[in-house]
Design a protein around this nucleic acid. Structure first.
Length: 521
RNA sequence: GGCGCCGUGGCCAAGUGGCUAAGGCAGAGGAUUGCAAAUCCUUUAUCCCCGGUUCGAAUCCGGGCGGCGCCUCCA
């Protein structure tokens, strides 16, 4: 039983072996906090949050670092444009980023170091590179000399000499066009820190090398980020770090696929299939999500769809694949979650306990360990089925964290449990003890596996406010009572009219034994 | 030009050499229900095209067509 991960460096799946036994260090490149984050920024955090949960489940002690880059040309531009200090822009956007992470259930991050709080380490790092002759000062700037690094290009598989169009505005200060800035001289109006080369600020890549070194050491296990960071960001990071420390920076380089926009121009307006297929072929122009292309509105998306839907949408596809994003797609995918929510209500009807608040398990279920001593006793068809689905789920997760494939077992588990509840009439007043226990154990497994994906940890956030809900509650119950009376009198026309009218405004009634329940949508 | 990815049922999406090609959504039929809802059961695949390797390929190789990414800021 071993975990395999795809390594960008070798372009193969490799067996996962940690540097220190039982411990894992992960560094994920976080955002440059100059604007509100968009949906694309959530892909890496969500998959690595899941990876951390899974590694912890496999008895690893995991340290997961996500950096905040809070000094950068774009941040300076923002602060000047808005007329506020750069640090204020950074603080606002960092809070926005963290709020979005929380909404998507990303709560496993161990450290979030900021670049501006590590200027000293950054300067020391650069000094070391200069001493070792891998970097040079040039008129207030410091550059990394790519020609000194014989391994430069190994991650992205490209040779600097073959690159066209490199150099940028600082080209005249460089020895070679592929050289990149470690330290940038400050212009008069720009924020600056004192350094041996005069006032300035760090270049883009150096903060990650310095901070990962500080928190995780010379070598750590996993370095992650979006595919678009392979070049130049990660290529430059490896170059800096390995020239500085003379050991491999990271064992496994993991890169998540990017999101592409699949907006058909009908977001928010329930586009019907009939409308779209009128001309037979509708080629939706899709393009990569990026802030420069106007992707945005993550907060609104979260408000409308809920974080869990978005998380589910992202984990449905393998993390290295491109995902075509649109709100319609999120909404559509999220419909599948309803089946689980309805089941959790069923679970509550059967056991009288909330799926979420079970005092015995809720708080610890996500900390369950693999191969724990399960309380699975006796044998039955359900138990066998559950065990098999669980091992299938784990087998798929072992194979490069194949969350999309693993989800199918979650759905099959759900179906098995529903079927079992049907067949054993668990919603009757007095269900037999033995089947009830088997059922609860099955639910326990469902919870255990779902929590590995970060799903169903907390109740879904509904859009309705608290007080609204109370009023709605009272009102609907009133109508239910009226309808119930009509039904008792065999006045089904009236009963149906009430139910249909409620259905028209989005309230669904469900008749159970002796009572009627309702839900929205 | 250099490096790289993708093309699986109406839609989304696993599977990368060998049982009847997962699962979800949508649709259809059935069970259940006073009628519904929920739930369960049943049901839909020339795996982009052509050639090759092989006893055997969606899966490997070559070619073609189509879509996309990076090489400039980007998760």
């Amino acid at each position: 039983m071993s975990i395999r991960v795809y390594n960008t460096l070798t372009r193969t799946k490799e067996e996962f072996q940690t540097i220190a036994p039982g411990k894992v260090g992960i560094y994920l490149c976080g955002p440059t906090v100059y604007k509100e984050s968009h949906i694309g920024h959530m892909v890496g955090p969500v998959i690595f949050d899941t990876i951390k949960r899974y590694l912890a489940y496999n008895r690893f002690e995991v340290t997961w670092v996500v950096n905040i880059t809070d000094v950068d040309d774009k941040l300076i531009a923002q602060s000047q444009q808005r007329g506020i200090p750069m640090s204020q822009v950074a603080t606002e956007m960092t809070m926005d980023y963290c709020a979005n992470l929380m909404a998507l259930g990303v709560d496993q991050i161990t450290h979030m170091p900021k670049a501006t709080e590590h200027i000293k380490e950054i300067i020391e790092f650069i000094q070391r590179l200069i001493e070792k002759d891998y970097a040079y000062e040039s008129a207030g700037d410091v550059f990394f000399d790519v020609r000194k690094d014989s391994e430069y290009g190994k991650l992205s598989n490209r040779r600097p000499e073959e690159q066209a169009g490199m150099g940028g505005e600082a080209a005249s200060k460089k020895r070679a066009p592929g050289d990149f800035a470690l330290w940038k001289e400050a212009k008069p109006s720009e924020p600056a820190w004192q350094s041996p080369w005069g006032p300035g600020r760090p270049g883009w890549h150096i903060e990650c090398s310095a901070m990962s070194h500080k928190v995780l050491g010379n070598s750590f296990d996993i370095h992650g980020g979006g595919l678009d960071l392979i070049f130049p960001h990660h290529e430059n990071e490896v170059a800096q770090s390995e020239c500085c420390h003379d050991v491999p920076m990271a064992r496994y380089w993991m890169h998540n696929g990017l999101l592409r926009s699949g907006e058909a121009g009908k977001v928010g307006g329930r586009a019907t299939a009939e409308e779209n297929t009128a001309d037979g072929l509708e080629h939706t122009a899709t393009e990569k999500m990026s802030r420069s292309k106007g992707a945005g509105g993550l907060r609104g998306l979260i408000d409308r769809q809920g974080g869990e839907r978005i998380r589910f949408f992202l984990l449905r596809t393998h993390y290295r694949s491109t995902i075509v994003f649109s709100e319609d797609r999120v909404a559509e995918a999220g419909g599948a979650l309803e089946k689980f929510y309805l089941f959790f209500e069923r679970y509550q009807r059967v056991t009288g306990q909330s799926f979420y608040l079970d005092p015995n398990h809720s708080s610890n279920a996500s900390q369950r360990l693999r191969d724990h001593d399960g309380s699975y006793t006796g044998d039955s068809e359900l138990r066998e089925n559950v065990c098999e689905l669980k091992s299938e789920f784990l087998r798929k997760m072992d194979d490069d964290f194949n969350t999309g494939a693993a989800m199918s077992d979650l759905f099959q588990l759900l179906t098995a449990l529903n079927k079992f509840a049907d067949e054993n009439r668990l919603e009757d007043k007095q269900p037999a003890d033995e089947p009830l226990e088997a059922f609860c154990q099955g639910v326990e497994t469902l919870r255990e596996l779902a929590h590995l994906l970060g799903l169903f940890v907390t109740p879904p956030v509904r859009a309705v406010g608290e007080s609204d809900q109370e009023a709605t509650n009272a009102l609907v119950n009133l109508l239910i009572n009226l309808r119930s009376e009509a039904r008792t009198n065999k006045n089904f026309d009236t009963a149906d009219q009430i139910r249909d009218s409620l259905g028209d405004i989005g309230i669904i009634l469900e008749d159970r034994q002796g009572s009627t329940e309702w839900r929205t949508q």
